[in-house]
Design a protein around this nucleic acid. Structure first.
Length: 395
DNA sequence: TCCCATT
């Protein structure tokens, strides 16, 4: 008997997953958490921050410290509306802002490129905590987002990012942090690696909590040899991406392919995601079975409704009469490549007839979207989301 | 040799 993947969606529809729309994604994330970008500082709550300069000006007040979150490593094409949609699934949002490139100059002003991070301020501190617990580490397209409390905004924490080069190729991220931690509190660290071989490129970043800490680190470590190293390292302030022009960002975008060649870890993560879906649905470990060797393509021969040749067609039911295409983009876009959305409307009234379709390019992204969005509460309606079936009978 | 963490 052939495994019918369309049944995954209906199986996932029942049970506890439906009650918590996003837990599907989280469950799929479990094995990925250690693979993402530097997420070892996700517990940087306000309690560890010295709040000496008591100036709750700008946009951050003391009360905000338990409701205001910073979200890092967002996909480049994610909009503020999508950010709000995703985090709004946790609880009521007081404000939400995607930080964008503000440089305009000669270039077209309508291009305001996302800088890949944003802020979400909840009404209820409990929702902020819940968002950290459930959305931190969520994989969106090629990114693994980081969700943590925002530090109170202040000039002293800006421009605290260092660029370090000449590192021994054998130096680990942990060793890098150990070297710099004597100068202050490290917010993030990263060593760049060759995309193909995974070998260190000998360059990295250290972001301190405060700029003065970064300045001290430059004084103490620039042109110095780390313990055991034969060559001195260079430590300087990193280029500030917000000062890059839109033009530069554009050319950078143009040069880097939209979908990077997945390294071993990414491939493994993808396999785990597929594995989790199959495991939850059937209690099988697909990665130990031949059909999971390369995920989707090795599933050939299995009857998979929803596959439309150009992508995977998803059926979305229980949309409101005034629903439009944009809501479908907003809901499904964060999960991966969406090539088409359509709201089915009444010919005479132009009102939505209660359902629509979404086409996604990649199977596993579609599967995670379905597992996550099925049962999603949109307004006063609970959506039903599944792969489109070939059946034509009326519901 | 430059990663996208402060509105």
């Amino acid at each position: 008997m052939a495994v019918r993947l369309c049944d995954v969606a209906s199986l996932l529809r029942s049970g506890s997953w439906a009650a918590e729309p996003w837990t599907g994604v989280i469950a799929a994330m479990e094995t990925q958490l250690s693979n993402g970008p530097t997420c070892n500082n996700t517990s940087n709550g306000p309690s560890t921050i010295s709040n000496n300069c008591s100036s709750p000006v700008e946009s951050g007040s003391i009360e905000d410290s338990k409701t205001n979150l910073i979200v890092n490593y967002l996909p480049q094409n994610m909009t503020q509306e999508e950010l709000k949609s995703l985090f709004g699934s946790i609880g009521e949002i007081e404000s939400c802002k995607l930080v964008r490139d503000k440089i305009t100059g000669n270039v077209k002003t309508w291009i305001r490129q996302s800088l890949g991070y944003g802020f979400v301020n909840y009404v209820d501190p409990k929702d902020a905590e819940k968002a950290i617990n459930t959305l931190n580490g969520l994989r969106l397209q090629t990114k693994t987002i980081k969700v943590s409390y925002a530090r109170p905004s202040s000039a002293s924490i800006r421009d605290a990012n260092l660029y370090v080069s000449g590192l021994p190729k054998t130096m680990t991220q942990k060793e890098l942090e150990q070297l710099f931690s004597q100068y202050g509190r490290i917010i993030t660290s990263r060593i760049l690696v060759d995309q193909v071989t995974g070998v260190s490129r000998g360059v990295g970043f250290i972001r301190f909590d405060r700029r003065i800490e970064a300045e001290e680190a430059i004084k103490g470590l620039n042109c110095q040899k780390p313990p055991g190293a034969t060559e001195p390292i260079t430590v300087k302030f990193a280029n500030n991406p917000s000062q890059k022009t839109s033009q530069a960002l554009l050319s950078q975008l143009y040069q880097s392919p939209n979908r990077r060649y997945p390294g071993p870890l990414a491939q493994q993560a993808q396999r785990f995601r597929l594995d989790n879906l199959l495991n939850m649905a059937y209690g099988v470990k697909s990665r130990f079975s031949p059909m999971a060797i390369d995920g989707v393509t090795s599933l050939a021969g299995i009857n998979i409704p929803g596959h439309a040749g150009t992508g995977w067609c998803i059926f979305v039911y229980n949309l409101a009469p005034d629903a439009d295409e944009s809501i479908l983009w907003q809901m499904f876009g964060p999960f991966g490549a969406v090539t088409n959305v359509k709201v089915i409307r009444d010919f005479n009234t132009s009102k939505c007839k209660g359902f629509g379709f979404v086409t996604m390019t990649n199977y596993d992204e579609a599967a995670v979207a379905i597992a996550s969005l099925n049962g999603y509460r949109l307004g006063d309606r609970v959506l039903q989301v599944s792969f489109k079936t070939n059946k034509t009978h009326k519901a």
